[in-house]
Amino acid sequence: MPKAFTPKIVTANDLLKGDVIYQTLDGWSRDLADAEVLTDEAHADLRLIEGSQQANSVVGVYLADTQVIDGLPTTTHFRESFRAKGPSNYNHGKQEVA
């Protein structure tokens, strides 16, 4: 029996800056709160294809599991939390600010 579809978001990396980005209704955002939450498998597949066709601006497009908590999308896998923090070396990117 196939696994039931769970909510997803489309995520990738910005081709020029390398930052994690999330597909929104009308583009891409660096803020997970802006991500479009996809609850229909066919629609998620379509949005994944649309994102993958933007090879001039994004790389590594894929669907990530998510859940909505207090009205905001939250990733469910530690990999996504790790990616969102940026490079793992000190004094670089987002971790420099945190």
Score class of each variant (00 low, 15 high):
residue 41 E to M: 10
residue 79 R to L: 11
residue 37 V to M: 05
residue 51 G to E: 03
residue 60 G to L: 01
residue 66 T to A: 02
residue 67 Q to L: 09
residue 56 N to Q: 10
residue 47 R to V: 05
residue 68 V to R: 06
residue 53 Q to R: 15
residue 67 Q to G: 07
residue 68 V to K: 00
residue 77 H to D: 09
residue 85 K to G: 04
residue 69 I to P: 02
residue 55 A to V: 03
residue 58 V to M: 01
residue 70 D to P: 01
residue 75 T to S: 14
residue 74 T to G: 13
residue 45 D to V: 05
residue 46 L to W: 13
residue 74 T to N: 15
residue 64 A to H: 04
residue 54 Q to C: 10
residue 67 Q to Y: 02
residue 74 T to E: 11
residue 57 S to R: 12
residue 40 D to C: 06
residue 83 R to I: 09
residue 69 I to L: 09
residue 50 E to S: 14
residue 55 A to Y: 04
residue 35 A to D: 00
residue 58 V to L: 07
residue 43 H to M: 09
residue 76 T to N: 10
residue 42 A to I: 12
residue 43 H to I: 11
residue 39 T to D: 07
residue 58 V to H: 04
residue 63 L to G: 03
residue 69 I to F: 10
residue 79 R to N: 00
residue 71 G to R: 12
residue 60 G to Q: 03
residue 57 S to T: 12
residue 58 V to C: 10
residue 40 D to W: 11
residue 38 L to R: 10
residue 53 Q to Y: 12
residue 57 S to L: 02
residue 80 E to V: 02
residue 39 T to L: 10
residue 41 E to L: 14
residue 64 A to G: 05
residue 62 Y to W: 09
residue 55 A to E: 01
residue 73 P to R: 07
residue 68 V to N: 08
residue 61 V to K: 04
residue 35 A to M: 04
residue 61 V to I: 03
residue 46 L to D: 07
residue 79 R to A: 08
residue 86 G to L: 02
residue 52 S to Q: 12
residue 54 Q to H: 05
residue 66 T to K: 09
residue 48 L to H: 07
residue 35 A to P: 07
residue 43 H to Q: 10
residue 52 S to K: 00
residue 52 S to G: 15
residue 51 G to L: 01
residue 51 G to W: 05
residue 56 N to T: 13
residue 56 N to H: 09
residue 84 A to K: 02
residue 85 K to N: 05
residue 79 R to H: 15
residue 38 L to S: 00
residue 63 L to Y: 08
residue 81 S to N: 07
residue 40 D to L: 03
residue 60 G to Y: 12
residue 88 S to T: 00
residue 50 E to W: 11
residue 41 E to S: 15
residue 72 L to K: 06
residue 69 I to M: 11
residue 71 G to E: 06
residue 47 R to S: 07
residue 61 V to T: 12
residue 83 R to P: 00
residue 45 D to L: 11
residue 84 A to F: 01
residue 42 A to K: 13
residue 61 V to P: 06
residue 58 V to K: 08
residue 71 G to Y: 12
residue 47 R to Y: 13
residue 72 L to P: 05
residue 69 I to S: 09
residue 59 V to I: 04
residue 83 R to M: 05
residue 45 D to K: 11
residue 79 R to C: 01
residue 68 V to W: 08
residue 74 T to L: 12
residue 39 T to C: 14
residue 82 F to W: 11
residue 39 T to S: 13
residue 71 G to Q: 08
residue 82 F to E: 02
residue 54 Q to R: 14
residue 74 T to R: 15
residue 62 Y to T: 06
residue 79 R to G: 02
residue 49 I to M: 14
